[in-house]
Simulated scan of single mutants.
Amino acid sequence: MRSNFKLLKKHRRYSDEFKRQIVADYESGEFSVRQLERLHGVSDQSIYNWIYKFSTFNEKGFRVVEMKDSSSKKLQELEAKNKELEAALGRKQIQLDYLEKMIELAKSELDIDIKKNYSTPQSTGSGNTKKK
């Protein structure tokens, strides 16, 4: 004899504080609904419901619609910005390596010590210093 069991759906309950934080992240423009969905494992419909309920910008009678293309476009823009910053960092590292090499050459070939010498004794003021 088989008994019929209803499939139990697991319902998660989220605190109002968590919901408000999700809405605040969305309103700040830091995350899209799709990104919040992936990040927190919450359905997009739940997030939209929270936006309708808790948003300070949403007026009654208006519907929030986010185009999927806009979030992918935002992601592409961020990736392009990341590449640009990595290229700038690479250029700065090359400049740093060049300057360090020039300092090294000045010391070895011209006997000029450009780097600060940390082994010199500190000054005690305007009094006479002892010479070693």
Rank of each mutant, 00 (worst) to 15 (best):
M102L: 15
L7Y: 08
M1A: 08
I22R: 01
D113H: 07
K6S: 10
N49V: 01
S108T: 15
L36V: 10
G41K: 07
N128D: 03
D25L: 15
D111V: 13
S28N: 14
D25E: 15
G90E: 14
L110T: 03
Q93V: 07
F31L: 14
K68I: 00
Q122Y: 07
K68N: 04
I51S: 00
E59S: 11
S43N: 08
K116S: 13
Q122H: 08
G125E: 01
S123G: 02
K115F: 08
L105G: 01
R38T: 08
G29T: 01
L7Q: 11
K130G: 04
D113A: 08
K53N: 01
F5R: 06
Y118R: 09
G41E: 05
L78I: 03
Y52L: 06
G125S: 02
M67V: 07
E100Y: 05
L7T: 12
E86V: 09
I114S: 03
F54Q: 02
L96P: 00
L89Y: 09
Q45R: 11
N58G: 00
Q45L: 06
S32Q: 03
T56N: 12
S3H: 10
E27C: 00
N128K: 02
E17G: 02
P121N: 04
F31Q: 08
N128L: 05
F18R: 05
M102C: 13
R12P: 00
A87N: 10
E77D: 15
Y48H: 10
K92I: 09
F18L: 03
M67Q: 11
K131N: 11
K60D: 05
G29R: 01
E104Q: 05
Q122L: 12
S3W: 04
L96V: 08
G29P: 12
I114Q: 04
L39K: 15
M1G: 13
T124F: 02
L110G: 08
G90W: 00
E27D: 07
K19P: 05
K53E: 11
K131Y: 08
K19D: 04
L99N: 12
G125L: 01
H40M: 12
R63M: 08
I47N: 01
E104N: 05
S46L: 07
T120E: 14
E109Y: 07
S108I: 15
I103L: 09
F57N: 12
S43H: 10
Y14Q: 07
S3V: 10
R12F: 13
W50F: 01
K116P: 00
A87M: 10
S43W: 03
Q35S: 04
E79G: 00
S119E: 14
E109T: 04
N4C: 06
V65H: 11
V65R: 14
V64R: 13
E59L: 12
D69N: 14
L7D: 01
R13G: 03
K81Q: 15
Q21L: 15
N117L: 12
R34N: 01
Q45G: 06
S72G: 03
I103H: 07
E100V: 03
K131R: 13
K74F: 10
R20H: 07
R63N: 09
Q93P: 00
N128I: 00
D111A: 15
Q76M: 14
